[in-house]
Design a protein around this nucleic acid. Structure first.
Length: 548
RNA sequence: GGCCCGUUGGUGAAGUGGUUGAACACACAUGCCUUUCACGCAUGCAUUCAUGGGUUCAAAUCCCGUACGGGUCACCA
């Protein structure tokens, strides 16, 4: 196509292809270094899949002394969300992710291969499109949406493969005169690839995760530049990842079927093809069916969900790592104190069948993590969470800092720490009884001894005759047994088991009465510790409440 | 419908033709320990790798068909 007409189609371009090739030279890195990217749309929404992809991207880059950058894919003007970029940066930072290159705020960026926002790269894409037009490898298309629909329905009727290709690609055959005429009439147009591919011809691609892939060659005249002058994803991906010198494209497997398009474009443009790594999506079991996690149906898809629930980000990262690399979990169990960065991840250990998201397992990982931190840290983190999501509780925690830390410390520093908490959002319900402000629930979980008169008798006997705040745990324990003997309960479990009918119950039943009276719950951490923290006055008060 | 990808217990999975009697972890069940719970310990939990055929002395592992699940066929990414 002649120069003049091309410039009419894509006006105002000041540089040529050579210019950009020189502007973005090959990166000066080791041969084996991986350059990869995180390429979200600026919707502000970060979902688990994104995080999943990002965690492996960063891991692979770090492991090979490479680069991981962020590129904003905003070629769809309809998807823009206000402050979408900062929202993404913030969300991702919560998990400790920062980038070597890319946007660092709504208007600033770092790195020498930018701009990293696609809408700001319009000229670059158009310059390459111009090159293709000049070579006759692209052409303008004036077909309207209605006409495209007609082509499609014709194809459906005659059971042909659907798409704009071969003889169906009518605008391919437009003469220069016809193009000029359309332009004069002011008809809107797009730029399409003049594709000489053959659908019946197979191409072979080595995917880093899936291995050998055999796919039909692309023969569709793909849209390169849309009516608004911006490129399609396909064109932008190829140009960007070439100019940004990406070595590895890590993405979800929903892209697998458009891989031939991308391979084709790389070849036509004469670019080196990067290594692709296609991940399976995170699924969910919904009744009997398995489906991809969905934004609308599954709140756990949004990473903000984990913040709200107070699931520590380390837990999520660990969970994702176990799901990502099949041999990670084993490694982690053997190297609990080591930095995760010491684990060597590899693409070929990544599973290819879709993973079912397992909340149960995530919570277990979380429990382990939270059981190993100090009471002080537990307090800080709970407070931090509460300040954001439960201000009233935050106030109580701050006011009762001492009680809270002591409570978190019960059976924590032992070799076998308690695993009571999986998320910060359940702390309040688990230990509310430690705070008088929260002790309004009188829904007592009485167990074997449920007769209220008997309960009252036990409580008053205990308080008047046996309980002394100053007792050591051992003495305290012995006194409990003494009381059992007095009231007709077995103080010795073995004796009780041999002859249960001789007693009204056993020491466990009696201590449960005290436990429930103090906490309303039958399951709590060590009772002695709880009583020490509550103090005599509170204990008296709680016993009185039972009497009312 | 075309094209592509996948299928090992309730879940994540190990496994790349022969020490696999199918690891390990989570979940579940039972027992022990224990004044509750939690922790811990012990034991159990796929006679079989979606299914049918084939290759082989030998197959979860290789080949073909079938079923089921997923993805994709836009001027969305």
């Amino acid at each position: 196509m002649n120069q003049e007409l091309v410039e009419r189609l894509l006006p105002g371009l000041t540089h040529d292809v050579e210019y950009y090739e020189k502007l973005y030279p090959k990166r000066n890195l080791e041969e084996t270094s991986i350059v990869t990217r995180y390429a979200p749309s600026p919707t502000g929404f970060v979902h688990l899949g994104n995080l999943f992809m990002l965690s492996i991207a960063r891991k692979m880059a770090r492991q090979t002394k490479g680069i991981v950058f962020m590129r904003i894919e905003d070629t769809d003007q309809e998807r823009l969300v206000e402050n979408g970029i900062s929202k993404i940066i913030e969300a991702v930072k919560e998990f400790g992710f920062t980038f070597d290159e890319g946007p660092i705020s709504e208007n600033e960026e770092i790195g020498n291969y930018g701009p990293y926002i696609q809408s700001k790269r319009k000229e670059i894409y158009q310059t390459y499109a111009k090159e293709l037009l000049l070579k006759g490898l692209a052409y303008p298309d004036f077909t309207t949406k209605e006409e495209l629909d007609m082509i499609r329905s014709e194809q459906e009727k005659s059971k042909r493969r659907i798409g704009y290709y071969g003889k169906w690609a009518r605008s391919r055959f437009l003469s220069e005169e016809e193009i000029i005429k359309n332009l004069d009439e002011g008809k809107p147009y797009i730029i399409r690839l003049r594709n000489n591919g053959d659908f019946n011809h197979k191409i072979v691609v080595m995917d880093a995760i899936r291995g050998k892939l055999e796919l039909p060659e692309d023969d569709i005249d793909q849209v390169l530049i849309k009516n608004d002058g911006l490129p399609t994803y396909h064109f932008a991906h190829v140009i960007d990842d070439h100019l940004m010198r990406t070595t590895h494209v890590i993405r979800g497997d929903e892209w697998l079927s458009s891989l031939p398009i991308h391979i084709n474009l790389f070849k036509i443009l004469g670019f080196e093809i990067p290594t692709y790594a296609h991940f399976s999506p995170l699924n969910k079991k919904d009744g009997n069916t398995i489906r991809k996690l969905s934004k609308r149906k599954d709140p756990e898809l949004a990473v903000s969900y984990y913040h709200e629930m107070g699931i520590p980000s380390e837990a999520l990262m660990l969970y994702l790592a176990t799901v990502t690399n099949s041999n990670f979990e084993e490694w982690y169990l053997a190297h609990e104190n080591e930095d995760i960065d010491n684990f060597t991840m590899s693409f070929n250990k990544v599973g290819i069948s879709g993973t079912i998201f397992d909340m149960e397992k995530l919570l277990n990982i979380s429990k382990n993590i939270l059981s190993r931190i100090t009471a002080q840290e537990m307090y800080q983190k709970t407070l931090e969470w509460a300040k954001k999501y439960d201000e009233a509780f935050a106030g109580i925690l701050e006011k009762n800092c001492d009680i809270a830390i002591k409570t978190f410390n019960i059976e924590r520093n032992s070799e076998k720490p308690r695993k009571d908490f999986a998320m910060f959002s359940e702390v309040k319900n688990n230990i509310f009884y430690m705070f008088n402000e929260l002790f309004i629930n009188k829904d007592y979980e009485w167990q074997k001894i449920s007769d209220i008169e008997e309960i009252k008798k036990i409580l008053s006997t205990y308080l008047n005759k046996y309980y002394d705040e100053k007792d050591s745990e051992e003495v305290w324990f012995n006194k409990m047994k003494e009381m059992c003997d007095e009231l007709g309960y077995a103080s010795n479990m073995k004796e009780y088991k041999q002859n249960p009918s001789q007693f009204k119950g056993n020491v466990a039943d009696v201590s449960t009465v005290i436990r429930v009276a103090l906490t309303t719950k039958s399951r709590t951490p060590n009772l002695y510790d709880i009583m020490q923290i509550l103090g005599l006055e509170t204990i008296k008060g709680r016993f009185n409440l039972v009497n009312e």
